[in-house]
């Protein structure tokens, strides 16, 4: 009986192991592991890093990339206070309305507002970027094989093209972008932002921070999910032991 259940497990395992074939993505270079704190079973987001990452997003990336699934109030999860969140939201002007006169109007943002998008529509976004579309970054960490490791690799992967390779007009060489030609110019340069906590604003640090922020943005539930998972699996393991003992006892007189 045990042998058979092992067989069954082997089949399940085989099914699961056989599937990453389904993940076949475009030709790309192997993504190095950047060693993020949040990738393990018990992993959590480094709050200080994610806060700095938000700063990078806001001061650099947000001029091209929307993140419209996030609300300013979500930043409280990163350890910002109510007042800090309100101050961040109030820096942007949000279009609202129509009011009683039927007019649309602008007002300062509130914590309940979604992150304001830099462009009113995809056409405007393309028009300002040589025809390329800067994707929304809300779930980008879930939308690329490799997740945050890929984002870190992409942001630190700008290099001179290999000899003999001619880049398309307005294109840049990136080691990790599939096909190596990316329409986004190197977005980060040393000391592009000034970190309040004194962390040196190197390209590596900023890339790591903004990747952490984007990983959190894509899966804000990850910490709660894993914590719940640990409890549920401990509970189920105990229950399995109990169910097995009951089964043995019930069957004791017929074996």
């Amino acid at each position: 009986m045990l042998r058979n259940s092992l067989k069954a497990l082997a089949i399940v395992g085989g099914l699961i192991a056989a599937t990453p074939g389904a993940q076949a993505a475009g030709e790309s270079v192997a993504i190095p592991d950047a060693g993020f704190s949040f990738n393990g079973i018990f992993g959590t987001y480094d709050r200080a890093s994610a806060q700095r990452g938000f700063q990078v997003y806001q001061q650099v990336c947000a001029s091209c990339h929307a993140a419209h699934l996030l609300s300013y109030r979500n930043l409280r999860d990163l350890g910002l206070t109510e007042a800090q969140v309100a101050a961040i939201a109030s820096q942007v002007q949000i279009q609202d309305g129509p009011n009683d006169e039927g007019q649309m109007f602008e007002r300062p943002g509130r914590p309940s507002d979604r992150f304001r998008s830099p462009f009113p529509n995809p056409q405007a976004a393309r028009a300002s970027n040589n025809g390329a579309m800067p994707p929304d970054l809300s779930v980008i960490a879930k939308a690329r094989a490799g997740g945050a490791n890929y984002l870190y690799a992409l942001l630190t992967g700008y290099e001179d093209p290999p000899a003999g390779m001619t880049l398309g007009e307005g294109m840049n060489y990136n080691r990790y972008f599939p096909g190596h030609q990316i329409a986004m110019a190197r977005p980060l340069n040393p000391d592009q932002v000034e970190y309040a906590d004194g962390t040196p604003a190197t390209i590596e640090n900023m890339s790591r921070d903004v990747s952490t922020f984007l990983a959190w943005a894509a899966e804000p539930e990850a910490e709660e999910r894993r914590a719940m998972g640990v409890k549920i699996i401990i509970f189920l393991t105990l229950l399995a032991g109990l169910a097995y003992v009951v089964k043995r006892k019930v069957w004791a007189n017929v074996h």
Binding site: T19, A22, K142, V230
Partner: peptide
Amino acid sequence: FFAPNYLGHPD
């Protein structure tokens, strides 16, 4: 709880 997107496709 630990690999919710493993069997899915990032695209």
